[in-house]
């Protein structure tokens, strides 16, 4: 069988040419190609990692922002609530104080008015008594200045008294 009989000449040619091919390809093709592939894979991996990191960072920042916003909101709400409470308290207090003050003032006013009134009444009483004395003096002076009138009066009084 010629088909399965190796041929020496062909074998020598094959060994020589294939060795050359292996040598040349390894030196001038596979080494640079494999190196370039590896380098590129490294670069891609590095870039992917960097992208992933950046994304994570961004997510982190975003999350932080959200948290801060939420906190700020709560803070704001609290502040508003507190302020509202303080406001109502202040108003309430003011109202209360005002009421008290007003009452006090009114009380005082009433007291002074009463005092004034009493004083005035006393004054008026004194004056009235004085005046009445004066008037009575004057009247008496006038009435009892002459004997005629005195007699008339006495008689009148006696008449008036009447013994009944």
């Amino acid at each position: 069988m010629e088909l399965i009989k190796p041929d020496l000449g062909l074998l020598i040619w094959m060994l020589v040419s294939f060795s050359v091919v292996v040598f040349v390809l390894i030196k001038y093709a596979w080494k640079p190609i494999l190196k370039a592939l590896k380098d590129r894979e490294h670069t891609i991996e590095k870039r992917l990692l960097a992208a992933k990191k950046a994304k994570e960072e961004l997510a982190r920042i975003e999350f932080g922002n959200e948290k801060i916003t939420a906190l700020a909101k709560i803070e704001r709400d609290n502040l508003i609530k507190e302020a509202k409470e303080i406001k109502t308290k202040i108003i309430e207090e003011a109202r209360h104080e005002a009421k008290m003050e007003a009452r006090k003032i009114i009380e005082e006013a009433r007291k002074s008015v009463e005092k004034e009134k009493a004083d005035a009444i006393n004054e008026i009483k004194n004056q009235i008594s004085e005046l009445s004395v004066i008037i009575a003096q004057k009247i008496l002076k006038q009435e009892l200045g002459n004997k005629e009138t005195q007699k008339k009066l006495i008689s009148k009084l006696i008449e008036e008294i009447d013994l009944n």
Partner: peptide, 11 residues
């Protein structure tokens, strides 16, 4: 050789 050396150059 021609193909792969040229491809290596492209790389």
């Amino acid at each position: 050789v021609v193909v792969f050396v040229s491809v290596a150059k492209t790389y």
